[in-house]
Design a protein around this nucleic acid. Structure first.
Lengths: 210, 210
DNA sequence: AGCATAATTCCTCACATGAGGAAAAATCTG
DNA sequence: CAGATTTTTCCTCATGTGAGGAATTATGCT
């Protein structure tokens, strides 16, 4: 964890043009958050890794939460928008469309953001407590609005269970063979489940319980 | 967070018989780990909450990892054993048996152990890296051994995705309505998925990808 | 009753963290 | 070119952490 003085100048003041401290900080943050977890990583450990002073990190990103947001690139993709688009179209293929959209999003981003964000959120009871509202409003809500009332919430919930489980196994944990299965194979196996949850027969006992 | 001197004596030495410091420490640990997350909770914060000195915590439980194990009551229930028992019997109802066993185990324990353990494990890249092996060996392995070779691993994986997703939604996140759905209703909705994953038709594209 | 053992606190140490602010150095602008 | 602005480090502070060990006090055993 020692800083290499060949990589880090010790004089105060502005660096010559062309050096991108912000990018180095963000890359270091992603690495630190991934390797140590958000809580155990510190602003100082990120700064050390980036080869800058902690004051520089603070200057650009303020506190650690904002550094996390920046490192995750939040705001660049909107899961809500992705869901909204996928949910449009015929209902008898909505399961597959949602799954493909999610797999594309996750595959594009790689496992890092999920591996950083999920434990960070789950470790904080206040953030964790916000997740149901967020999920219902932003992810499952647009789906439920396409379904007949009465079972819509339960059906969207069930879809959520399968999607989050797949996300966990494939991206967060890296469970094989599903972690390296081609997307088409995943869709072939899992989309029928999603479709049944959304539009298929739910046994009476499930519906009564809702 | 301040300690109440009416609850804590300040003299050194053994306490009169009848006071159970260990139980108080474990209860405090569970509360602290749940409310702050494992990493952010400290041995000192646990001790403060329990009304004892940090040295006492250290005396009984050594380091924080061992305190976590004790607080979670690890060793009292064996998921592996539960899976092994549920997997015995006719294959055409194994999905439901596994699900009932898991729901019982989770319901009995309440959300706390999962809310403590999951972020703790996922925040630590070394522990996280061990999860696939553990899951495959201890949970999914006994299931896969009951299935015909060739697709056994994929089928067990698929079952795992649904189970972990259900666990996340129902217990960790508290997503409604599934969080408060009666177990029978959950089984009615989800067991057919598990059964299909284990013994049902998997589309060709899924099987080829495995 | 006396001694050994067990349980608990107090003390100390080295180290780490987030945060604020001032000084220094490069760039930008008119 | 000079001054303003931007960027970066150094310095300081208050607070917290894990860990080791010795002193103290109650219990257990003979």
């Amino acid at each position: 964890m020692g800083e290499s003085s060949s990589e880090r100048t010790s004089r105060r003041g502005r660096r010559p043009a062309g050096q991108d401290a912000r990018a180095a900080i963000l890359a270091a943050a992603r690495a630190e958050f991934t390797e140590r977890g958000y809580v155990a990583a510190s602003v100082r450990s990120v700064a050390r890794r980036a080869g800058v002073d902690p004051g520089t990190v603070r200057h650009w990103y303020g506190d650690k939460a904002r550094l996390l947001s920046a490192a995750l690139g939040l705001g660049e993709i909107s899961p809500t928008e992705i869901v909204r688009q996928a949910v449009e179209g015929p209902l008898d293929t909505v399961g597959e469309r949602l799954l493909r959209a999610a797999l594309t999003m996750w595959d594009d981003a790689g496992p890092e953001p999920l591996r950083i964000a999920l434990p960070a959120v789950l470790s904080d009871p206040e953030l964790r407590a916000l997740m149901p509202q967020f999920l219902l409003a932003e992810i499952l809500g647009p789906i439920a609005r396409r379904l007949p009332p009465g079972e819509a919430a339960l059906r969207a919930n069930l879809l959520g269970t399968q999607m989050v489980g797949l996300m966990m196994a494939r991206y967060v944990v890296g469970l094989e063979p599903i972690a390296s299965l081609p997307a088409d194979a995943v869709v072939a196996a899992v989309a029928p489940t999603l479709q049944r949850y959304l539009t298929g027969e739910l046994p009476e006992a499930a519906a009564v319980g809702a």
